[in-house]
Protein backbone atom coordinates (compact mmCIF):
# COMPACT_ATOMS: atom_id res chain seq x y z
CA UNK A 1 0.00 0.00 0.00
CA UNK A 2 2.44 2.55 -1.18
CA UNK A 3 1.04 5.97 -0.69
CA UNK A 4 1.72 8.23 -3.58
CA UNK A 5 3.31 11.49 -2.66
CA UNK A 6 3.15 13.50 -5.79
CA UNK A 7 5.37 16.46 -5.97
CA UNK A 8 4.26 18.24 -9.04
CA UNK A 9 6.61 20.73 -10.24
CA UNK A 10 6.33 24.11 -11.48
CA UNK A 11 8.10 24.32 -14.50
CA UNK A 12 7.93 27.40 -16.43
CA UNK A 13 10.87 26.88 -18.63
CA UNK A 14 9.15 25.40 -21.60
CA UNK A 15 10.34 28.25 -23.68
CA UNK A 16 12.86 26.13 -25.49
CA UNK A 17 10.51 24.51 -27.97
CA UNK A 18 9.73 27.08 -30.64
CA UNK A 19 13.16 28.69 -30.75
CA UNK A 20 14.72 29.44 -34.09
CA UNK A 21 17.37 26.98 -35.19
CA UNK A 22 20.11 29.55 -35.07
CA UNK A 23 19.63 30.15 -31.39
CA UNK A 24 19.54 26.43 -30.78
CA UNK A 25 23.16 25.98 -31.62
CA UNK A 26 24.25 28.74 -29.31
CA UNK A 27 22.07 27.97 -26.29
CA UNK A 28 23.03 24.60 -24.80
CA UNK A 29 20.51 22.20 -23.35
CA UNK A 30 19.94 22.25 -19.63
CA UNK A 31 17.69 20.47 -17.18
CA UNK A 32 15.27 21.71 -14.55
CA UNK A 33 13.41 20.08 -11.74
CA UNK A 34 11.29 21.80 -9.17
CA UNK A 35 9.44 20.50 -6.20
CA UNK A 36 6.05 21.88 -5.30
CA UNK A 37 6.87 21.18 -1.68
CA UNK A 38 10.20 20.99 0.06
CA UNK A 39 8.99 18.58 2.73
CA UNK A 40 7.41 15.14 2.90
CA UNK A 41 5.88 14.15 6.23
CA UNK A 42 5.89 10.63 7.56
CA UNK A 43 2.62 9.90 9.33
CA UNK A 44 1.80 6.89 11.49
CA UNK A 45 0.40 4.92 8.56
CA UNK A 46 3.53 5.40 6.45
CA UNK A 47 4.67 2.18 4.80
CA UNK A 48 6.84 3.44 2.01
CA UNK A 49 5.77 5.71 -0.82
CA UNK A 50 6.36 6.53 -4.44
CA UNK A 51 7.66 10.02 -4.96
CA UNK A 52 6.93 11.71 -8.26
CA UNK A 53 9.10 14.52 -9.50
CA UNK A 54 8.41 16.45 -12.69
CA UNK A 55 11.10 18.16 -14.69
CA UNK A 56 12.01 19.51 -18.09
CA UNK A 57 14.84 19.65 -20.57
CA UNK A 58 15.51 23.21 -21.74
CA UNK A 59 16.47 24.02 -25.31
CA UNK A 60 16.37 20.46 -26.62
CA UNK A 61 17.34 19.80 -30.21
CA UNK A 62 14.01 18.61 -31.68
CA UNK A 63 15.75 16.14 -33.96
CA UNK A 64 17.71 14.43 -31.18
CA UNK A 65 14.62 14.56 -29.06
CA UNK A 66 12.56 12.74 -31.71
CA UNK A 67 15.20 10.03 -31.98
CA UNK A 68 15.13 9.56 -28.22
CA UNK A 69 18.66 10.85 -27.87
CA UNK A 70 18.05 12.47 -24.50
CA UNK A 71 18.24 10.44 -21.33
CA UNK A 72 17.52 11.54 -17.81
CA UNK A 73 18.59 9.97 -14.54
CA UNK A 74 16.95 11.22 -11.36
CA UNK A 75 18.38 10.35 -7.95
CA UNK A 76 17.05 10.90 -4.47
CA UNK A 77 19.96 10.76 -2.08
CA UNK A 78 19.32 10.43 1.64
CA UNK A 79 21.37 11.99 4.45
CA UNK A 80 24.88 10.60 4.90
CA UNK A 81 26.19 8.59 7.83
CA UNK A 82 29.24 6.45 8.57
CA UNK A 83 28.79 2.68 8.23
CA UNK A 84 30.82 -0.25 9.53
CA UNK A 85 30.80 -3.37 7.34
CA UNK A 86 31.60 -6.57 9.23
CA UNK A 87 32.63 -9.82 7.69
CA UNK A 88 31.68 -12.80 9.76
CA UNK A 89 33.96 -15.78 10.08
CA UNK A 90 33.94 -19.04 11.94
CA UNK A 91 36.04 -19.14 15.10
CA UNK A 92 35.90 -22.40 17.06
CA UNK A 93 32.71 -23.32 15.25
CA UNK A 94 30.96 -20.06 16.17
CA UNK A 95 30.20 -17.30 13.67
CA UNK A 96 31.67 -14.05 14.94
CA UNK A 97 32.18 -10.55 13.56
CA UNK A 98 35.76 -11.00 12.43
CA UNK A 99 36.92 -8.15 10.19
CA UNK A 100 35.49 -4.73 9.64
CA UNK A 101 35.91 -1.77 7.35
CA UNK A 102 34.49 1.65 8.14
CA UNK A 103 33.05 3.84 5.41
CA UNK A 104 32.28 7.52 5.79
CA UNK A 105 29.66 9.79 4.23
CA UNK A 106 27.53 6.92 2.97
CA UNK A 107 24.02 8.00 1.92
CA UNK A 108 21.62 6.06 4.13
CA UNK A 109 19.23 5.74 1.20
CA UNK A 110 19.78 6.12 -2.53
CA UNK A 111 16.93 5.80 -4.97
CA UNK A 112 17.47 6.03 -8.72
CA UNK A 113 15.04 6.37 -11.63
CA UNK A 114 16.22 6.24 -15.24
CA UNK A 115 14.81 6.41 -18.74
CA UNK A 116 16.68 3.25 -19.80
CA UNK A 117 18.97 0.61 -18.33
CA UNK A 118 22.09 2.43 -17.09
CA UNK A 119 24.43 0.59 -19.49
CA UNK A 120 22.39 1.87 -22.45
CA UNK A 121 22.66 5.51 -21.42
CA UNK A 122 26.38 6.08 -20.92
CA UNK A 123 29.63 4.30 -20.20
CA UNK A 124 30.81 3.11 -16.79
CA UNK A 125 33.51 5.75 -16.74
CA UNK A 126 30.98 8.58 -16.83
CA UNK A 127 29.02 7.03 -13.97
CA UNK A 128 32.17 6.61 -11.90
CA UNK A 129 33.19 10.20 -12.56
CA UNK A 130 29.74 11.45 -11.66
CA UNK A 131 29.44 8.99 -8.72
CA UNK A 132 26.04 8.13 -10.14
CA UNK A 133 23.92 4.99 -9.80
CA UNK A 134 23.68 2.45 -7.00
CA UNK A 135 26.44 0.36 -8.61
CA UNK A 136 28.83 3.24 -9.32
CA UNK A 137 28.22 5.59 -6.39
CA UNK A 138 31.54 6.29 -4.71
CA UNK A 139 31.68 4.75 -1.24
CA UNK A 140 34.50 6.33 0.70
CA UNK A 141 36.50 4.10 3.04
CA UNK A 142 37.74 5.72 6.23
CA UNK A 143 41.20 4.26 5.69
CA UNK A 144 41.98 4.93 2.02
CA UNK A 145 45.46 3.47 2.31
CA UNK A 146 44.09 0.05 3.21
CA UNK A 147 44.53 -3.12 1.17
CA UNK A 148 42.78 -2.33 -2.16
CA UNK A 149 41.48 -5.88 -2.64
CA UNK A 150 39.93 -5.80 0.77
CA UNK A 151 38.38 -2.36 0.22
CA UNK A 152 36.91 -3.55 -3.08
CA UNK A 153 35.44 -6.60 -1.38
CA UNK A 154 33.86 -4.63 1.48
CA UNK A 155 32.59 -1.92 -0.88
CA UNK A 156 30.81 -4.54 -2.96
CA UNK A 157 29.34 -6.08 0.20
CA UNK A 158 28.09 -2.69 1.39
CA UNK A 159 26.36 -2.05 -1.96
CA UNK A 160 24.83 -5.52 -1.99
CA UNK A 161 23.46 -5.18 1.56
CA UNK A 162 21.99 -1.75 0.83
CA UNK A 163 20.25 -3.05 -2.30
CA UNK A 164 18.91 -6.09 -0.41
CA UNK A 165 17.38 -3.94 2.32
CA UNK A 166 15.68 -1.73 -0.28
CA UNK A 167 17.47 1.39 0.93
CA UNK A 168 19.25 1.56 -2.40
CA UNK A 169 17.07 0.98 -5.43
CA UNK A 170 17.06 1.45 -9.18
CA UNK A 171 13.86 1.99 -11.09
CA UNK A 172 14.62 1.44 -14.79
CA UNK A 173 11.97 3.20 -16.87
CA UNK A 174 11.10 5.30 -13.83
CA UNK A 175 11.72 8.43 -15.86
CA UNK A 176 9.30 8.98 -18.74
CA UNK A 177 9.19 11.78 -21.25
CA UNK A 178 5.70 13.23 -21.43
CA UNK A 179 6.59 15.53 -24.31
CA UNK A 180 9.82 16.57 -25.99
CA UNK A 181 10.79 18.57 -22.98
CA UNK A 182 8.70 17.48 -20.04
CA UNK A 183 9.51 14.36 -18.02
CA UNK A 184 8.21 12.61 -14.95
CA UNK A 185 10.37 10.59 -12.52
CA UNK A 186 9.00 8.05 -10.06
CA UNK A 187 11.25 7.19 -7.11
CA UNK A 188 10.76 4.66 -4.33
CA UNK A 189 10.73 5.78 -0.73
CA UNK A 190 11.26 2.56 1.27
CA UNK A 191 9.32 2.03 4.55
CA UNK A 192 12.57 2.55 6.47
CA UNK A 193 13.47 5.76 4.60
CA UNK A 194 15.65 7.91 6.86
CA UNK A 195 14.35 11.26 8.01
CA UNK A 196 16.46 14.29 7.24
CA UNK A 197 17.44 16.33 4.23
CA UNK A 198 17.34 14.42 0.98
CA UNK A 199 18.78 15.71 -2.24
CA UNK A 200 16.94 15.20 -5.51
CA UNK A 201 19.39 15.36 -8.43
CA UNK A 202 18.63 15.12 -12.13
CA UNK A 203 21.28 14.30 -14.75
CA UNK A 204 20.81 14.98 -18.46
CA UNK A 205 22.59 12.88 -21.10
CA UNK A 206 22.60 13.41 -24.85
CA UNK A 207 23.64 10.46 -26.94
CA UNK A 208 25.62 8.97 -24.07
CA UNK A 209 27.32 12.21 -23.13
CA UNK A 210 26.68 13.93 -19.82
CA UNK A 211 25.39 17.47 -20.37
CA UNK A 212 24.04 19.00 -17.20
CA UNK A 213 22.97 18.37 -13.65
CA UNK A 214 20.50 20.10 -11.38
CA UNK A 215 19.38 19.49 -7.83
CA UNK A 216 16.78 20.41 -5.25
CA UNK A 217 16.49 19.67 -1.54
CA UNK A 218 13.67 17.73 -0.01
CA UNK A 219 13.16 17.36 3.74
CA UNK A 220 11.63 14.13 4.98
CA UNK A 221 10.24 14.73 8.44
CA UNK A 222 8.10 12.90 10.93
CA UNK A 223 4.54 14.13 11.34
CA UNK A 224 3.33 15.91 14.48
CA UNK A 225 2.81 12.97 16.85
CA UNK A 226 5.84 10.98 15.71
CA UNK A 227 8.01 14.07 15.92
CA UNK A 228 6.71 14.92 19.40
CA UNK A 229 7.51 11.43 20.68
CA UNK A 230 10.96 11.57 19.13
CA UNK A 231 11.74 15.00 20.56
CA UNK A 232 10.42 14.04 23.98
CA UNK A 233 12.66 10.96 24.02
CA UNK A 234 15.70 13.05 23.24
CA UNK A 235 15.02 16.32 25.06
CA UNK A 236 13.37 14.98 28.21
CA UNK A 237 14.92 11.50 28.40
CA UNK A 238 14.38 10.91 32.11
CA UNK A 239 10.78 12.11 32.10
CA UNK A 240 10.15 10.08 28.97
CA UNK A 241 11.49 6.97 30.70
CA UNK A 242 9.35 7.57 33.79
CA UNK A 243 6.34 8.16 31.56
CA UNK A 244 7.05 4.88 29.73
CA UNK A 245 7.13 3.03 33.07
CA UNK A 246 3.93 4.66 34.36
CA UNK A 247 2.18 3.94 31.05
CA UNK A 248 3.28 0.30 31.20
CA UNK A 249 2.01 -0.06 34.77
CA UNK A 250 -1.28 1.55 33.82
CA UNK A 251 -1.71 -0.75 30.83
CA UNK A 252 -0.83 -3.74 33.01
CA UNK A 253 -3.39 -2.72 35.62
CA UNK A 254 -6.10 -2.00 33.04
CA UNK A 255 -5.33 -5.27 31.31
CA UNK A 256 -5.84 -7.06 34.60
CA UNK A 257 -9.25 -5.41 35.06
CA UNK A 258 -10.44 -5.93 31.50
CA UNK A 259 -9.12 -9.41 30.82
CA UNK A 260 -9.14 -10.97 34.31
CA UNK A 261 -9.85 -14.64 34.18
CA UNK A 262 -10.06 -15.66 37.84
Amino acid sequence: MARRAIIPLLLTSLLGAPMPSLAQETIPESIQIGLSTDRVTITSDFSGAALTIFGAVDNPDPQISRQGGYDVIVVLEGPSAPVVVWRRARVLGVWVNAQSETFVNIPVSYSVATTKVLQDIAGQTSYRQLSLGASYLYLEPENREGDPARITEFTAALRARKLETGLYSENVGGVQFLSQTLFRATLNLPPNVPVGTHKARAFLFRGGVFIKETSANLAIVKAGFEQTVYRAAHDYSLLYGIFAVVLAMLVGWLGRIIFRRD
Binding site: V84, V85, W86, R87, R88, G93, W95, N97, R161
Partner: peptide, 18 residues
Protein backbone atom coordinates in the same frame (compact mmCIF):
# COMPACT_ATOMS: atom_id res chain seq x y z
CA UNK B 1 22.31 -18.77 14.21
CA UNK B 2 25.64 -19.01 15.97
CA UNK B 3 26.80 -22.31 14.54
CA UNK B 4 25.18 -22.52 11.12
CA UNK B 5 26.62 -20.53 8.24
CA UNK B 6 24.71 -17.25 7.85
CA UNK B 7 22.93 -16.47 4.60
CA UNK B 8 25.10 -13.43 4.27
CA UNK B 9 28.55 -13.19 5.79
CA UNK B 10 28.53 -9.40 5.64
CA UNK B 11 26.75 -7.24 8.17
CA UNK B 12 26.25 -3.48 8.38
CA UNK B 13 26.31 -1.53 11.61
CA UNK B 14 26.77 2.02 12.75
CA UNK B 15 30.01 2.94 14.47
CA UNK B 16 29.68 3.35 18.22
CA UNK B 17 30.03 6.83 19.60
CA UNK B 18 28.98 8.67 16.47
Amino acid sequence: DLFVAPGNVYLLSTPVGM
